[in-house]
Nucleic acid binder design. Structure first.
Lengths: 263, 263
DNA sequence: CGCCGCATTGATGTGACTCAAGGTGCGTGG
DNA sequence: CCACGCACCTTGAGTCACATCAATGCGGCG
């Protein structure tokens, strides 16, 4: 059980609860929910219970009842998948600490996607009701989530596989950096297959591209360990809409600050 | 001015205000904001002013100040575009009556995308503050918007151009149907180019596919007038992940009720 | 040791983009 | 009223990126 790389086949449902911790003492404090909130009285009332989710386990499955709750990740990381038009599960995104799960299910009776831990993780359960004192903040994270999803969709319209992978790596780098980890060296929590599925490519293409980037001295890779050697070069690659279709339009050139938030 | 087909080059900023109308007497009432709300006192307090937006005009542009407001479309339709990684504007979606604009900008200082009317339209301005009495509903539409964007991303991962266009047509059909228009016959509000841009294809491909569908007796097309002849066939096409990559994964087969909400 | 899943690598096919040219409908101006 | 111009749309031939198929290497686990 628990292969070196893995997550995928035979997920389990395990979920253990852990002792309550106050938000104010949480490592993810600066990035997570009430990032700007100075009123700590409200902050610590937000969180219901904490839930440990071991690697390859589901936090929730498509079809599970929602119950007006969502989750903030304390540590660890998740992949999120749901059925595509053909009924096949496809990865819709990866989430890491201080990011949220199930924001897309708030108005719903039951979840329409499944969240699987990529490593041993822990999440905080938050009831929407408890967000009342922080409504503007709550709304902004919902809104931001919409933007993030739009960014994913934009990425996928960038036909070229190169750009997708480059943007993906840059996005991860950015997110690690913000969390205090090295933005230049990190370990991928997900398999090539997961990456490929998320980017709408094949694992073979991802593999080849990784080595292409390596040959171009943009990155270093061995297995899941990635080092960004030339982030600027990567950015140029991600931006070069090379063979991408569309492109023209009205043209009100705006610059996107590049990867922001979850992918 | 105002060519037969158009929207695209030389958009304007015109915006006229019109006399207040009560939500309770609005044509879009059943689909729009407080769909289920029985308490009409709250309903009519939601809307600030109404804004007429003529064809090819912007409701807002990327960079405009937000001001804690969003919009519900009373009649007409819009396209929404923003800069991709290369700084080129790309269409992120189309919106029609009883759908919302600027939900992605709620926490922000300024808009990061531009909304252009595809035909003469009118929108209702809604301040987030006024949503207090309808918070659960408000949250559900935000949440639903996230889901819709995920659906777009899913669609775009379905590599095959056939499926993208089929799904797009079905989605439009569904949305027209829900609004009391014929789901089988409708007129596209957007150009081939807009469709192509949105779907990550080229106008040529869209054109060819339209005729391919016609040859297969799935639809009828002349210009922008579309008739769905064999919706079931189209659905099968949209679902047949034929040459799409990925596909496998853990497999917890779930069926997606197909097109729901905005694309 | 042998199995299995993941990752890599190569050979081949094809879908969709590219480039280029021609058709069509509407608006404009003579 | 007709001719022209301009988008938009269509259609065709050639090319290339990525998927597909297939085989091998590698590491962990039973």
């Amino acid at each position: 059980m628990l292969n070196y790389l893995s997550a995928g086949h035979g997920t389990r449902d395990a979920a253990r609860f852990s002792a309550p911790v106050e938000c104010s003492s949480c490592r993810a404090r600066q990035l997570c929910l009430p990032a700007g909130a100075t009123d700590h009285r409200n902050v610590d009332k937000l969180v219901g219970r904490r839930i440990k989710v071991s690697r390859d386990s589901n936090l929730y499955k498509a079809g599970d009842l929602v119950g007006n709750r969502f989750y903030a990740i304390r540590y660890g990381s998740f992949k999120n998948y749901r059925a595509d038009a053909a009924g096949q599960p496809r990865i819709t995104g990866f989430q890491m600490s201080a990011e949220f799960l199930a924001l897309d299910a708030i108005g719903l009776q039951q979840h329409n996607c499944t969240a699987v831990a990529l490593e041993d993780s822990e999440v905080c359960e938050i009831s929407c009701g408890s967000m009342k004192p922080l409504l503007p903040f709550f709304h902004s994270i919902l809104s931001k989530e919409i933007t993030d999803e739009q960014n994913v969709a934009l990425l996928l319209r960038n036909t070229r596989a190169e750009q997708r992978l480059a943007a993906f790596l840059l996005n991860l780098s950015w997110r690690y950096g913000v969390r205090g980890f090295s933005p230049a060296r990190f370990r991928l929590a997900m398999s090539r297959r997961d990456i490929a599925d998320f980017l709408g490519l094949t694992p073979e293409s991802v593999s080849r591209l990784m080595f292409q980037f390596k040959d171009q001295n943009l990155i270093n890779v061995t297995g899941r360990d990635v080092t960004l050697v030339d982030a600027i070069g990567l950015k140029q690659l991600a931006a070069n809409a090379g063979g991408a279709p569309g492109a023209a339009l009205d043209a009100t050139p705006q610059t996107l600050p590049l990867p922001r938030g979850e992918l």
